[in-house]
């Protein structure tokens, strides 16, 4: 209390070490999208929605890169890794987007993974009812997490809790998933109690956000699948493969 330096459980420090270099990810995805658009003929340019899909696809690549180089996950066999990622890819995308807005903290604008800002009202004016509903659910979650003062240490813990889901069946190494869940929950509780002693229910409130992230991500998948059936989503990419994986 009284300005003591923040204390991080050792495991939280280890999780932070797995975080990607944000500016590098930003530059990589922005460059990719610019090249992708420039390489297309005048009449094949991607529209806004198509660019957003490509951006989500590239963000998925960076999420897979983060996972496979992360503590615990890198110990798993590929089949287990695939099952875990196929289960939670849309939640990790949702959590990534929501956390970026929590940190961005600029009412009325959305910060993209490329570092660009988009006017929220502009998107809302172009989007249909379903996408608007989805965006407003995400923004409600952003507000809740902002008032909870979610920080990066807690964010990385939530990412691992989402990745190592106990809902995934037929894993060869389910024991590791259980152990990671236990360790991360303990580390998160320890961190929150030490660094936010005045927010006695913060740990519980953070965990209560996980089903909300799941609900938003499933709504996003439904929307994306509907748009895919309409032929509005660029195909032959990781995003489409993951979308189909759960339906297979």
């Amino acid at each position: 209390a009284g300005g003591s330096p923040p204390t991080f459980p050792h495991l939280v420090v280890e999780l932070l070490k797995c975080e990607p270099d944000e500016p590098q990810v930003q530059a990589k995805i922005l460059t990719y999208l610019q090249q992708e658009q420039a390489s297309r003929g005048k009449h094949e340019k991607l529209n806004t929605f198509g660019l957003m899909c490509k951006m989500a696809d590239q963000t998925l690549f960076s999420i897979v890169e983060w996972a496979r180089s992360s503590i615990f996950f890198r110990e798993l066999k590929v089949d287990d890794q695939m099952k875990l990622l196929q289960n939670c890819w849309s939640e990790l995308l949702t959590l990534d987007h929501v956390f970026r807005q929590v940190m961005h903290a600029k009412e009325g604008s959305i910060l993209l993974v490329t570092g660009q800002q988009v006017d929220y009202a502009l998107i809302a004016s172009q989007a249909g009812a379903t996408l608007n509903n989805l965006l407003s659910h995400a923004q409600e979650l952003v507000s809740k997490l902002r008032s909870l003062q979610l920080d990066q240490r807690e964010f990385v813990c939530l990412k691992f809790l989402v990745l190592f889901s106990l809902d995934v069946k037929n894993l060869e190494n389910f024991h590791l998933v259980e152990s990671v869940q236990e360790q991360i929950n303990a580390a998160l509780l320890d961190y929150v109690m030490c660094n936010y002693p005045q927010q006695t229910d913060k740990f519980g409130q953070l965990l209560l956000r996980l089903p909300e992230i799941r609900a938003i991500s499933l709504q996003a998948e439904e929307y994306l699948y509907y748009k895919h059936l309409n032929g509005d989503v660029p195909c032959n990419n990781l995003l489409i493969e993951m979308l189909h994986a759960k339906r297979a």
Binding site: F61, V64, E65, R68, S69, V78, Q81, M82, L85, Q86, N237, L238, E241, M242, A245
Partner: peptide, 18 residues
């Protein structure tokens, strides 16, 4: 018909620095 190779599997099996 051979199944389309999984992009996710390729990514997970790729060498670390690729």
């Amino acid at each position: 018909e051979p199944e389309e190779p999984s992009l996710l599997k390729k990514l997970l099996l790729a060498p670390a620095n690729s």
